[in-house]
Design a protein around this nucleic acid. Structure first.
Lengths: 334, 334
DNA sequence: TGTCGTGATGTGTACGGTCACATTCTGCGG
DNA sequence: CCGCAGAATGTGACCGTACACATCACGACA
């Protein structure tokens, strides 16, 4: 008759079997020096034998360190955030950290409760990928005391940020179209309160102004191919443009589809530029000219920043990665 | 001169200020009955005042419950798993659980260490989205004692599984092509050891055999548009087929691109069917006929299964969701 | 040979909760 | 007005670990 529930072996069980004190076992676990090699070896052996696993909860309780990093991500399943999160998880695991992900909608309350949630988890640091402006209000209100880094931000008032220079990306795309000789350029932007959408739009407007072209009010979209399609249908009613800069690749896909349906050829009649360079973009028809940003790299670098800070490095940092224009078949001279 | 580090308030601080014992505070926290409403109210107020947050580590230590669910996901950033994970996270949070995600490569050691990692985290249950066959060996070897559910599996030897019926999906796609009168049908499958890839392939072969058509050996792909493209280039050298069933939408995208390049029209010359129905599929050119599976629903249902089990329900369950054929423009009569 | 420094190991305690059990406070029937 | 059941609340122990400090053994050195 066995006991209902076998308790997992704890540090004292190990100590007893190894004939040492629990403290010695603890030292072995934490790689402390001043342990006789023979002792260390014996303890290690018992640990293996028992399949002993240190109890993280107990450890966290006493050290006040959870070895966990929180990720606050927008409530989306977009390619970009997803890829970054993935990279963060991998990098964190390699550094002995865990990652606790929580998603949030874009309204203030959701963001706030997401941050609260992570705080309760006692995460040691937070990576914020929710690229909405309200996120900063929430951070301020909550009085976040742990290190955090924001992605997709161009703001300088937070201690750390890490991002692809969206403004530069917007300029790159627009400049490309202008260089091809286009004068009437439309912009399908992202949602209003997305930081990155705003930056891309500003990049667009900057170049338009600089070239002294006719400024057309950007169309605010929602990142989906669906929206791109319907925007395209609408635009076909007054086809007085020769190029369109879409704030992401999906919307570009939808737009091109609508243009095709409407009998307009890309790039012969209309040039289209996307943004992100999702893996599929090269296989759209025509292959999409777009602005590449390396989401995985952003994830990795942001985690590196956080780890640095946890190790005690100080000072703010505002890294920006330059985006890259990838010219394919969806753009042509006017 | 303030103290360097202000200790977060604990349950005894709350008790002192509220003029009750810490046990009473604990009762309030856990919604236990037999608390005088006035007392409860007073304690609640102090909790708010202090901004007190129960320490999860301490709680986990004594209750032996982490309120955390582990997710073991394949080392991919594919649309499907991503969407499911997202749904799981949202559903878990709503039920008061946290989610700890760990990614893994498809080799045995990675899977094994991923499971080990989650076990060390003392997660209460595990959702396994790594749809590789080796995952089952790892589970068996590790002697997983906590509840777990596997996705994308048709195996009956695990206690719980939850999946879209991939076999049926493969049949659906193939049958559709056969019904259109196609006799020479190619299949670009997924990687060898992916369970779902295998099931789709079996579905394909089943229908081919049943219709007594010429069986062509499937081409083993890697899910990427890139592969689809190169496979397409290769296939163009002997264009003796009139239809292709691709094991996912991305490969279909790449294939169609290659076919276009080679001067073959879809669907006039070749019909193409995908699998998954990613949001972009409707805006491919031509719009992709594909087999839809509801990844979010899978995520939610799998979590429901796990929560049921944690609440003490017993018995195995093997839910399967029927996939759905979505006919669009990439298929036409032979 | 006694003292001292140093490496190796052991002991006590705290971390912040929950659980089992003990104790006190109520209101009500006899 | 007492006794008692049941509600309300309090006390002690314990969960598994790390840290601070005490202790021990041993060789070097005066």
């Amino acid at each position: 008759m066995e006991p209902e529930k076998v308790r997992a072996p704890n540090i004292r069980d190990v100590a007893r079997l190894a004939g040492v004190s629990y403290q010695t076992v603890s030292r072995v676990l934490n790689d402390s020096p001043n342990i006789r090699p023979s002792t260390r070896e014996r303890v290690r052996q018992v640990i293996d034998e028992l399949g002993y696993q240190p109890n993280q909860a107990a450890r966290a309780l006493v050290t006040n360190r959870s070895r966990t990093i929180g990720v606050l991500s927008g409530d989306t399943a977009h390619y970009g955030p997803t890829t970054s999160v993935h990279a963060i998880e991998v990098a964190a695991r390699q550094s002995g950290y865990r990652v606790m992900i929580t998603n949030t909608a874009s309204d203030y309350d959701s963001i706030r409760s997401g941050l609260d949630f992570l705080r309760v988890q006692a995460v040691e640091a937070i990576v914020i990928i929710a690229p909405q402006v309200r996120v900063f209000d929430a951070i301020a209100d909550i009085g976040l005391t742990i290190p955090f880094v924001t992605l997709d931000s161009t703001r300088r008032d937070t201690s750390h940020s890490m991002s692809v220079d969206q403004f530069a990306g917007g300029r790159l795309a627009t400049r490309h179209l202008i260089d091809l000789g286009h004068r009437e350029i439309e912009h399908i932007a992202g949602p209003r309160d997305w930081i990155e959408a705003d930056a891309r739009m500003r990049g667009f407007l900057h170049e338009i102004n600089e070239a002294e072209l006719n400024t057309r009010p950007p169309i605010l979209g929602d990142w989906t191919a669906d929206f791109g399609y319907h925007a395209g249908r609408e635009m076909l009613r007054h086809p007085d443009f020769s190029a369109v800069f879409c704030a992401n690749d999906q919307m570009a896909l939808g737009l091109i589809h609508a243009l095709h349906e409407g009998g307009m050829r890309v790039p012969q009649d209309v040039s289209v530029v996307g943004f992100d360079d999702i893996p599929d973009a090269a296989y759209f028809w025509p292959p999409l000219t777009t602005v590449r940003q390396d989401f995985a790299e952003i994830g990795r670098r942001s985690l590196a920043i956080i780890l640095d800070e946890l190790r005690g490095s100080t000072g703010a940092s505002h890294e920006q990665i330059a985006p890259e224009l990838v010219v394919r078949g969806s753009t042509a001279p006017a």
